[in-house]
């Protein structure tokens, strides 16, 4: 998971508008954790949706159905 933290750090820095904005070491740790929770939450919700429809294959249409629920994460206007 060390590599993942590095990825998150670089990913976030690449999205900053100003070049002089930097990320603290502990902040990267927490953000990596936050993204992990986000992905796991998305995966679990999709799985539950597939289970409720008695599907063995978890498909993208299940994800489409639970996508609005991810608004709880402060998802922006793209979804």
């Amino acid at each position: 998971m060390f590599l993942f933290q590095e990825t998150v750090g670089k990913l976030l820095s690449s999205f900053f508008k100003e070049d002089k904005t930097k990320l603290g070491g502990d902040a990267v740790l927490l953000m990596a954790e936050m993204l992990k929770v986000f992905v796991q939450e998305a995966a679990m919700r999709t799985l539950k949706q597939a289970e409720s429809e008695d599907c063995d294959q978890v498909d993208i249409e299940h994800f489409e159905k639970i996508l609005p629920q991810l608004y709880d994460f402060g998802l922006g206007d793209f979804a």
């Binding site: 508008k17 993204l35 998305a42 294959q57 996508l67 991810l70 922006g76």
Partner: peptide, 26 residues
Amino acid sequence: REFNRQLVAAITETAYRQCDIFAKDL
């Protein structure tokens, strides 16, 4: 269960755009 490849790609895309929003907020 099995996760579709397309689905994994979609979750990645969501996480990626979420990163954008997170970064701008931070």
